[in-house]
Design a protein around this nucleic acid. Structure first.
Lengths: 160, 160
DNA sequence: GTATATCGTTAGTGCCACTAACGCAAGACG
DNA sequence: CGTCTTGCGTTAGTGGCACTAACGATATAC
């Protein structure tokens, strides 16, 4: 049912020094690991990363159209369709046509959706902790600071 | 021909604070970005990440069977088949049956393969620089140090 | 009032991590 | 010797994700 439970490709072998210390490679391995932890954790609550992202975006900035939600979360509007379907099935959001613009749907978090989000928030916090487990608090801040810089830099270099 | 040239999903919108500072999310975004830079760079030399990984592993520890190579690089042995095919087509490695164990193939880097690798090494170094562009040297070392710690920690917790 | 842009949606592409199963060969052991 | 297990390369397939293309319907701009 759940794929990606094993992890053998990265186990106890001895990759060459050149590969082992390649920043881009380390980044993708750590990201992959983090992703797996998070996805498996969320699966225990019958949720996926995108569910969380969509709920957070709705919770923080209020009801929105799918296009707007896509911009807030970075989820492609084509993929968002399924995410909203799933959240609606579970009763966590409602999808209603926008009377003011009939091309749009207005997505709203329901009360159960909010409760669900609270659980997910807690879970996500724990999972972040698992990911960063070996790091001290200052190290964690260094890491997030540095990652933020990189993201900042690259979005700047792309948008005029 | 080359997919993933655009990047709009991550552009100039305003993700919620909760999402924006989520370490696992930052990691995957940065990793994705790095990966794209590297893949596009390597594509200019008609190579892929796996080609580089395999060549490095062969270069550093000498000829090896595919299984051995899979352990060195982390590439699944099923996926390695295609990688070796491609490298062999380009004349960068040779695949020969191992007389000592007829189940195995011995993969050897050719001289053109070594020259190719030298180009890739140079390119990869530049690309790492692009990825880490906004960071100072000490910050780069912090980042790689911290990433190494995380990888270390997680491989320890999986292997007895 | 016709061109143009936007919205939700469907379908599909290609890459990647990963699994399953195959035929074949080697090693272990009685 | 024969059987049993284990490791090898290979093929095929799964599922997720990032991403593109194109559609009908509606809104906006000229």
């Amino acid at each position: 049912m759940i794929a990606r439970m094993t992890w053998d490709a990265m186990d106890d072998h001895h990759p060459s020094a050149r590969l082992r210390r390649l920043p881009s490679r380390m980044l993708s391995m750590v990201a992959m690991h983090a992703d797996r932890l998070v996805s498996e954790g969320l699966a225990r609550e019958d949720a996926r990363k995108w569910h969380y992202a969509a709920l957070v975006a709705l919770d923080e900035a209020g009801p929105a159209s799918q296009a707007e939600l896509s911009k807030r979360t970075g989820i492609y509007r084509s993929d968002l369709v399924a995410v909203i379907n799933e959240l609606a099935e579970r009763g966590h959001v409602e999808r209603a046509p926008d009377p003011a613009d009939r091309r749009r749907n207005v997505i709203t978090v329901t009360e159960p959706g909010r409760r669900h989000l609270r659980r997910l928030d807690k879970l996500i916090t724990e999972l972040q902790d698992d990911v960063l487990a070996p790091l001290t608090q200052p190290e964690r801040e260094q890491l997030t600071g540095v990652l933020a810089q990189i993201l900042e830099h690259h979005s700047r270099s792309r948008t005029s």
